[in-house]
Amino acid sequence: MAERITLQVSRYRPENDAEPVTQEYEIPLRKAWSVLDGLNHVKDHIDGTLSFRWSCRMGICGSCGMTVNGDPHLGCAAFLTDYAPGPVRVEPLRNFPVIRDLVVEIGDFMRKLPKVKPWLIRTDTAETGTAEAEAAEIGTAEIGTAEREFPQTPAEMDEYHRYSMCINCMLCYSACPVVGLEEDFLGPAAIAIAQRYNLDSRDQGAAERFDVLSSAAGVWDCTFVGECTTACPKGVDPAGAIQRYKLTAAMESLKAFVLPRRAR
């Protein structure tokens, strides 16, 4: 008989459960199976009511973030054989409200992310230089057309490349105690993504992002636990991005203190 492994899955069915309860499923332990494959086996063959999010099965879409044996992981990147002989505890991502079973409500992150203006900002394409004016002009603006290109050297790309690997899977939000404690904290991914644009040689929006990033709920809430970087499945290093920005923001603020009337 083939080997088997037990999944202890956190179930929350709001129509019946006041609190999440644990349900056990015994599934085959196959060499190439991830936790997500195990859950799909449960869904297809054992219990069709189990709810969880997934899409690409290959660590690109960022949908299947979950807590596996207490650690935040992509379900598709956590392999069952690494947890043998089991049991494997599967819970929803922490620090998010649970809608059902392993499905969490991500509105918090979705509202925070646009605050850092995660897109390339050019101040030289429109007279007023704001992103809004630029967006209004997008039909006629040169951005992205053959008339004007923004070339970049490999060294310039290296400056931000690792931050651009973020897939918005929110494992870092799940790993970060400050996210759980400070509901306004922008959070690791949003700041890392802001740095992805700040450090891009084609971007001119660092000044527009400054106020949000250097507010109390921005980088200063971070106490450098470092777990975001440990949790990140794409090697983004949000903790490093935040500390780097603290130094940048502190230097800017120091300038403002020393030279208060200097026009910037």
Partner: peptide, 17 residues
Amino acid sequence: WHRTRFPVFWWLRRRSY
């Protein structure tokens, strides 16, 4: 939605914390 209160002794729950 189910919301969990952040435990007071959260730093005892993980070695890294």
